[in-house]
């Protein structure tokens, strides 16, 4: 099966346990909703291809465990990430408060030009909402995120959008880099000019 792709981006999902990271990833990957998703232990991984502006984009999605004690382990995966999706549960204020610490990790361990999204999940539970759009949006600004989004993995609201927005921005960033210095080593973002690795690095999964 020939599986061509022009760009490969690594995206990591972080946030407290139970906010819905795995449900979001599964919704994005398979389009379905699994009610009884098991807790993530360590770091899970999946791949998904999408097309943006006629370009084939391969997304490597790293889904991390939310429990505090796994943090030292997941931090190792920040370094090579191009994008970070920091997730909280709109119905649990404590998970929103934790985003400060999660974002602190991001600034410590991610590369400086990493693209960040802040995502408030479970927006389907309208009557149990504890964090307002304004407050979360302001928080997002202070984190210098690309955007603050509200999602529902359950009702498939904004899930695809989140990943597409992320990928589009990464693509834009990439073209800028290319415009600036075509010869410069581009950190392996663009694998299309290395024909040997195009087929192989994109064919698993």
């Amino acid at each position: 099966m020939e599986d061509k792709c022009d760009y490969l981006f690594k995206i990591i999902l972080i946030g407290d346990a139970g906010v819905g990271k795995t449900c979001i990833v599964q919704r994005f990957k398979t389009g379905s909703w699994f009610e009884s998703q098991a807790s993530t232990i360590g770091v899970d991984f999946c791949l998904k291809t999408c097309e943006i502006n006629g370009k084939q984009i391969k997304l490597q999605v790293w889904d991390t465990a939310g429990q505090e004690r796994f943090r030292t382990i997941t931090q190792a995966y920040y370094r090579s990430a191009h994008g970070v999706i920091c997730t909280f549960d709109l119905t649990k204020e404590s998970t929103f408060d934790s985003t400060v610490e999660w974002m602190d990790d991001v600034s410590r361990f991610c590369s400086t030009n990493v693209v960040k999204l802040l995502v408030g999940n479970k927006c389907d539970m309208i009557d149990r909402r504890k964090v307002s759009h304004e407050v979360a949006s302001a928080q997002g600004k202070s984190f210098e995120v690309l955007e603050y989004l509200e999602t529902s993995a359950k009702e498939n609201t904004n899930v695809n959008d989140a990943f597409i927005k992320m990928a589009t921005e990464l693509l834009k960033q990439q073209s800028n880099v290319k415009d600036l210095a075509d010869s410069k080593d581009d950190q392996g973002f663009n694998i299309s000019n290395n024909t040997k690795s195009v087929g192989t690095s994109c064919c698993f999964g």
Binding site: F45, S201, F204
Partner: peptide
């Protein structure tokens, strides 16, 4: 038997 890439090997083992 495949490229020496972290993601490929990680996923394979999982």
């Amino acid at each position: 038997d495949g490229p020496c890439e972290m993601a490929r090997i990680y996923q394979l083992l999982l």
